[in-house]
């Protein structure tokens, strides 16, 4: 069988540098009563991107605190408005108002998710470059809403089981509309595979009193990474995450011990260790021409959602 070329990612972030960045961030965020947060976030992303290497070149994040601040203010506005509706209706003591208020709150949260994914992808991709080539997101909000609402409906009538397929459908749509110059992406994982990973993982973790949990985590990571394809003209290559359950165990336990024994101060080191764990074990398998990417994306200017997704911690992007 033909041996495909393999090219590794690498991550060279250091805990010490990241600690300096995070401490500055925390201090300024507290002193400014939280308003520094967007700048803190931009600084964090900039650092993480500039330490990530692919074919010998670093990624770069060009977003600024000011851009994220705009999104941050809108995010705070939306969140406060929703909480106000919920709180005021609860305090009114009127049963009808309580029900209506709760429904508006839930509907608001649900309706906001596609908007958040869409906005976050558009903003984040437009601000990400590699060798000066911009990433881009070309998905349509309308399409995403369609996928999301249909999926949400099935999720409700299947008592939540369909949420696995919903997640996969969103991932497929989002990735297939992501560009890295003229390189396209796709996701080939299927809901049934992920369902089986969850089923086997939960069952075996339970039977083995948790020991299998690390294999379960390994399978989940691999599912998310190894199903991503990169298409460059007529060539296709695949991401590959090469980790064992033992690696996952060492990573998780190591980070846990670092954080606990430093009373949280070691968190920047744990974060960097975690990033290295994934990126140093990730590679691109297949033919890829790093010199042949072309600039294809337009400049895009809207930071509305980069931060909403962070506040709601969707973990989808």
């Amino acid at each position: 069988m033909e041996e495909f070329p393999k090219n590794k990612f690498s991550f060279s972030g250091s805990g010490k540098s990241f600690f300096g960045i995070q401490m500055t961030n925390i201090l300024l965020t507290i002193v400014t009563l939280g308003f520094y947060y967007p700048w803190a976030r931009a600084a964090t992303l900039r650092y993480v991107y500039q330490e990530t290497e692919f074919f010998g070149s670093r990624f770069a994040f060009h977003g600024t605190g000011k851009e994220i601040f705009r999104g941050f203010i809108k995010a705070i506005g939306v969140v406060i408005a929703l909480y106000l509706v919920l709180t005021l209706s609860q305090l009114s003591g009127n049963l009808v108002l309580i029900i209506v208020g709760t429904l508006v709150y839930i509907a608001g949260l649900v309706a906001i998710i596609p908007l958040v994914i869409h906005g976050a992808m558009k903003y984040r991709m437009s601000r990400t470059t590699w060798r000066g080539i911009h990433f881009g997101y070309r998905g349509e909000l309308k399409e995403l809403y369609k996928i999301f609402l249909i999926g949400a409906f099935y999720t409700v009538i299947t008592l939540g089981i369909y949420s696995i397929w919903l997640g996969i459908n969103i991932r497929k749509y989002v990735l297939s509309n992501t560009r890295m110059g003229n390189v396209k992406f796709s996701f080939i994982g299927e809901g049934s595979d992920l369902f089986f990973v969850h089923l086997a993982g939960r069952f075996l973790s339970f039977v083995t009193l948790g020991i299998y949990l690390f294999s379960y985590m390994r399978d989940l990571y691999k599912f998310n990474v190894n199903n991503v394809l990169l298409h460059q003209e007529d060539m296709t290559c695949q991401l590959e995450l090469n980790i064992t359950a033992m690696d996952v165990f060492k990573n998780v336990m190591g980070n846990f011990l670092i954080v606990v024994f430093t009373l949280g101060l070691g968190l920047p080191w744990a974060t960097m260790r975690n990033m290295s764990f994934y990126l140093d074990n990730m590679s691109v398998v297949g033919y890829f021409e790093p010199d042949k990417l072309e600039q294809t994306e337009d400049n895009f200017n809207n930071a509305t959602s980069d931060d909403l997704s962070d506040m709601l911690d969707l973990g989808l992007v």
Binding site: S14, K16, R46, Y47, A60, T129, G132, H134
Partner: peptide, 21 residues
């Protein structure tokens, strides 16, 4: 750029979109 000297490479970017590097 917030270039970190501890990093082994520095990336200088120039002008506006699309930026030269």
């Amino acid at each position: 750029n917030d270039i970190n000297i501890s990093s082994s490479k520095a990336l200088l970017s120039y002008g506006s979109f699309p930026k030269q590097l």
